[in-house]
């Protein structure tokens, strides 16, 4: 069975995110005051073949641990569609 999944990869909390900081500093110029905590990450979409939703989730998590995210600096979240 095919399962669609979305992986969100973010820098871990506490790790400086210069992209997020730059975006945050740019927002007031467009008139958006009071925005804080901007973090920029990446989104990976994929389809996996698995027996059950649990298996699909485990498979994607394994991919994240081994490849899609770098556990030293990044955290990830898997959402099945």
């Amino acid at each position: 069975m095919n399962f669609g999944a979305v992986v969100d990869v973010m820098l871990k909390p506490g790790i400086a995110d210069p992209q997020g900081q730059t975006v945050e500093r740019a927002l007031p110029a467009l008139g958006y005051a009071g925005v804080e905590g901007v973090r920029v990450g990446k989104r990976i979409e994929l389809t996996v073949d698995a027996g059950t939703p649990e298996e699909a989730r485990e498979l994607v998590a394994e991919m994240c641990n081994r490849f899609l995210a770098n556990p030293v600096i990044e955290s990830y979240n898997v959402t099945l569609l």
């Binding site: 820098l11 790790i15 400086a16 210069p18 992209q19 730059t22 770098n70 030293v72 600096i73």
Partner: peptide
Amino acid sequence: PGALRKNSGL
């Protein structure tokens, strides 16, 4: 050990 991040000044 560790990882290489984007330069702090981008």
